[in-house]
């Protein structure tokens, strides 16, 4: 399992970011707020990881970015999920489910 799980873990942040973009296009600040919100404040996203993750996603062609004005009239950069991103998110979600079930099975076994 080793390698695959590693990849999954590394991709977790990217998955969350993609997920947050499914409903609407957001800027970096919006993504961090949204993630805090849907995890019910369970985790505060580290800004230091968010932006590199966004740049990585854009480079991979999963999202694209464009400049626009924010709801408060500030100039901001919005991110939009691309079809390739949606597809990846679906695959990763399935993988993730499989992975978490496997972990659970191990952790909850009686040995």
């Amino acid at each position: 399992m080793g390698n695959k799980s590693n990849n999954l873990l590394l991709g977790a942040l990217e998955m969350l970011v993609l997920k947050s973009l499914l409903t609407e296009d957001r800027h970096g600040w919006g993504i961090s707020k949204r993630l805090k919100q849907i995890s019910s404040g369970a985790f505060t996203l580290n800004v230091g990881s968010l932006y590199p993750a966004l740049y990585r996603l854009e480079k991979k062609g999963l999202v694209e970015s464009y400049a626009a004005t924010s709801e408060k009239g500030r100039e901001a950069r919005f991110y939009k999920i691309l079809p390739k991103g949606k597809q990846q998110l679906e695959e990763h979600t399935a993988d993730w489910r499989e992975f978490s079930l496997a972990v659970e099975a191990v952790l909850l076994s009686d040995s």
Binding site: W29, S32, V47, Y51, A76, R77
Partner: peptide
């Protein structure tokens, strides 16, 4: 310049 702008925006909003 994009990085600068983006991070300033994030900081200001916060």
């Amino acid at each position: 310049s994009r990085m600068d702008k983006e991070m300033r925006f994030h900081l200001e909003e916060h």
